[in-house]
């Protein structure tokens, strides 16, 4: 599980859903959609420290323009380690918020030609981010 510390910037609530904007680093503001409101989860207030959790297997790696995808969260990283399996491969990226682990299909690894020291965007959909105070 990837886990990063940040703080809440903004909470937008509609019905029982909230869109939470979290600052994780200087250039990294991510959003998470949660089935909670500031009433049901009192920690959902701007300024509150929060951890953002997501699975390695939910990370999408991208070499192109991130604005052409319906994925809200992205972060630039440099490939630090590659452990290639037959079906799945594990990559460790160096990013401004720390080391991020991605597990992707080995075929994608080949297709994208991912290797050490390459620059890549790590992307995560907003419904995959778990928030924990």
């Amino acid at each position: 599980m990837n886990s990063f510390n940040g703080h809440i910037l903004e909470v937008e609530t509609v019905g029982n859903l909230s869109l939470v904007r979290v600052a994780l680093g200087k250039n990294t503001q991510w959003v998470s959609v949660v089935l909670d409101t500031p009433q049901t989860a009192p920690y959902l207030v701007p300024g509150e420290d929060i951890r953002v959790l997501f699975k390695e297997t939910e990370v999408i790696l991208n070499l192109q323009d991130p604005n052409l995808l319906s994925v809200d969260n992205y972060l630039k990283g440099t490939v630090k380690e590659v452990e290639a399996g037959e079906i799945l491969s594990r990559l460790v990226l160096d990013t401004e918020i720390g080391e991020l682990v991605a597990v992707v299909g080995s075929k994608s690894l080949k297709r994208l030609g991912l290797a050490r020291n390459m620059s890549v965007l790590a992307m995560v959909k907003m419904n995959e981010l778990i928030l924990a105070p």
């Binding site: 909670d36 989860a41 959790l53 290639a84 399996g85 799945l88 594990r90 597990v103 778990i130 105070p133």
Partner: peptide, 20 residues
């Protein structure tokens, strides 16, 4: 935390499969 699908359980087996 915001995970709503949640259970408690006991770890009974751990197995390595490729890189996971």
């Amino acid at each position: 935390n915001s995970a709503k699908f949640r259970f408690t359980g006991e770890v009974i087996h751990i197995e390595k499969e490729e890189v996971i």
